[in-house]
Structure formats: C-alpha cells, structure tokens
C-alpha cells in the first residue's frame, strides 16, 4: 500500500472523540430504576451486553453493577435477565 502520513490541518473537521458524559448526567431522565438482586445474579453478562447506554458492568464477585449517573431506566436489562435478578423500581420510592 502507498505509504500513509497523517498531516493535521488548520481546518475544523467533523471528528469527535469519545468522552464520558458529553451530554451531561443523562441518568436524571430516569423514571424507573433497575435494581439488581445480586444473590440471584448468575454473572451471565446478558444485561451488560444488551444495555444500550453501556452503563452495566458484571463483576465476578459483586454481580451486575449499574452506573446510575447515565442509566436512563429503559428496562432492557430487567427484560433480558434470565434469572429475573433485575426489577424496575419507580424513582423516588
């Protein structure tokens, strides 16, 4: 292949670098909160895989952990959980 050289230019280019929370703490939008019962969690990773906001991490010891700063409460994790370890609870309750 032809040799490639990256030469930056003075021009503004429509590139964006990823950054956590670029649009603020979007968890504020949440109406319902997913709550994990870690005793039921089998560490199957389904919630982490399906979460559209990428805010769930499954820890071998602690089970599914949700970052509520950015979780918008869509409920997909509760829906896909085969162990029914996640329940949706109304915010403020």
């Amino acid at each position: 292949m032809t040799k490639l050289v990256i030469v930056e230019s003075k021009y503004k280019i429509p590139l964006a670098l990823p950054k956590i929370g670029a649009a603020g703490k979007t968890g504020l939008w949440r109406l319902e909160r997913p709550v994990v019962d870690t005793s039921k969690c089998t560490r199957c990773f389904q919630c982490e895989i399906y979460c559209p906001a990428n805010v769930i991490r499954v820890d071998k010891e602690k089970g599914a952990m949700i970052n509520y700063d950015y979780c918008k409460g869509c409920g997909i994790c509760a829906n896909v959980c085969p162990a029914k370890a996640i329940t949706m609870v109304k915010e403020g309750e």
Binding site: T2, K3, L4, V5, I6, V7, E8, S9, Y11, K12, I13, P14, L15, A16, L17, P18
Partner: peptide
C-alpha cells in the same frame, strides 16, 4: 506518500459525522 488529516486504523476511537451544534457546523 498518501497524506490525510486523520485515519481510522483502530488505534484510537473517534466518531465521524456525529451531531454538531449549528455554530460548529457553520465553522
């Protein structure tokens, strides 16, 4: 050699064509 301002080669994550504000777009 081939010259360009950026490259997608997996070394660094970035997005092209994401939402920009009107002022940024105009600039």
């Amino acid at each position: 050699p081939r010259r360009q301002p950026y490259v997608i080669d997996g070394s660094k994550p970035w997005a092209l064509g994401s939402l920009a504000w009107p002022e940024e777009t105009e600039e």
